[in-house]
Design a protein around this nucleic acid. Sequence first.
DNA 1: CTGTTAGCGCCTTCAT
DNA 2: ATGAAGGCGCTAACAG
Lengths: 342, 342
Amino acid sequence: MGKKKETITIYDVAREAGVSMATVSRVVNGNPNVKPVTRKKVLETIRRMGYRPNAVARGLASKKTTTVGVVIPDISYAFFAELTRGIEDIANMYHYNIILCNSDLKKEKEMQLIEALLEKQVDGLLFLGGEVTEEHREIFSGAQVPIVLAATHDEVDKDRPYVTIDQVQAAKEATGILIREGHKRIGLLGGPLTDPIIGFPRYQGYKEALEEEGIPFNENWVRLGNYRYNSGLEAAKELLGMVDAPTAIFAVNDEMAVGAIHAVQDRGLDVPKDVSVMGFDNIPLASQVRPLLSTVAVPMYDIGAVAMRLLTKYMNDETIEENQVVLPYRLELADSTRLKEL
Amino acid sequence: MGKKKETITIYDVAREAGVSMATVSRVVNGNPNVKPVTRKKVLETIRRMGYRPNAVARGLASKKTTTVGVVIPDISYAFFAELTRGIEDIANMYHYNIILCNSDLKKEKEMQLIEALLEKQVDGLLFLGGEVTEEHREIFSGAQVPIVLAATHDEVDKDRPYVTIDQVQAAKEATGILIREGHKRIGLLGGPLTDPIIGFPRYQGYKEALEEEGIPFNENWVRLGNYRYNSGLEAAKELLGMVDAPTAIFAVNDEMAVGAIHAVQDRGLDVPKDVSVMGFDNIPLASQVRPLLSTVAVPMYDIGAVAMRLLTKYMNDETIEENQVVLPYRLELADSTRLKEL
DNA sequence: CTGTTAGCGCCTTCAT
DNA sequence: ATGAAGGCGCTAACAG
């Protein structure tokens, strides 16, 4: 493990090949200004000596690391794992590597991570999923590299690039499905209302849908969870235990929605006959449950991919036409609701 | 975005603070050999100037990047996401960052990624989940940094550090549960038998369990999938359609197991009354299904955490007592099987 | 405790 | 098409 063999440098290769460092450097970097014969010779001695370019040295000299930082709430959430896959695929395609950091949505940790990433001279930064506060804006603006938000946006800095979906509208439409099924008592399994990215907007959409259709809004039918299965299960249990229990439940994410389905079933009731359930996100779980979950299909992979692509444009000084992208979502009506057509 | 402000270096700070670069460096790195007054002064001008250390330069000079490479099959698999979380947490604890790469188990891509990671001078490497071939051994042995395997091991190089579980034994015990429930016709939803890490060993365990108990092994009850939900669903459908259909199914991972549960239910049968189902891994999905899935609880997070911890020991030249760790697993008997006690 | 001095390995003009 | 030389920003002896 980790034998300290003498590291062989570009200089060694140059000497061995009878050329200068500059020439070796050119060959390594695919600079066309090298006579084919020379190139061949260098390439050969590189292989023979087992030379491996030192990207750190290159980074110092060229001021580019071909590495981008990714700050994400929690990779063990299916939603973010999917998104990260999109990021990594595109990064890989453009020959970037990603340094992945979990923030757990802790502001202090986020700051720390961003700082560390910038010290490591990443060529760009992707910030996912959390609220963008004044402190964020401060450190962002002090960065000398492009920063793109994914699955979130900045309420204040209207110029900050981002890629996301229209949360309010999607939640509104999802709720609308339940309304059009004829439900009057529609429960909400929400996230923290202090969460300006997911929790609040989706709650907002729910409320707006009710208002628009003149359906009474009942505070008691709103339960706030933490986006996890168990919180959905428990909250739904409470809802179903009420005398005027809801006949439909809109959960602001799929995990909670599946929890709700099971709460209904555990009570001996049927989904969607007795209670309709609508989710949000369309993580794999949505199609790994019975009945199949109706949900808002969020293009998770694409959000990551598009955000990363946008970042590469910044990093390469390409002209960018649209730096704030709102991706389309789609209602995926399956078996946990009764309406099958939009 | 990315304003090219003049980068301020350690030299600028030194000049401004009226000390030498060395002193600033000492302060930045927490070297105790600095008079408190001096330290304070330096710290102050650092803050005032907004100096941010350049980790790339530091890496070149110190030959340490405090970054480790992680090659993983696919972050969108719950199993690996969980594992990665363990890795990242420990990495973070020891002030390392991780460069995450998805290999999709493609050997060529793996080689490429490892090469790139080594060029980036990672201080160590974690290789997850795939087969270790001769080519792997070659590049591993050429690396000047420690490399540890997680959730896999090397059949040939008996010294290569790893952290995993006893796949065969676990599969054997899982199958044993089904046998002790009285089943004689036990189906297997396996992975590719060419996969020496998961597919084959778990198949092996299944077979051994049958043999030991004198239960007939029937080729027809063995279906190989790709570890995904749908492949489990489809394969189970086939099994259930047979005239001598199995009365119990052992799936070598949870996704396929849940697919099997649904295949049974979609057929109007009951789990576990008509068919028992046993999974493997204990990903969150196992407890987000009805009936709750009985499974082999693999300490995914711990595998990642322990592997990373082991790697830090190598990187810091700590004495390490055990460099090949076989973590314990646990049978988690829930509602998809009938046996409740071991 | 603090300063001086070499590099670390490579890129990048600038000559040739 | 190729070589020479000066950094990139920081760490690490080595003096003092």
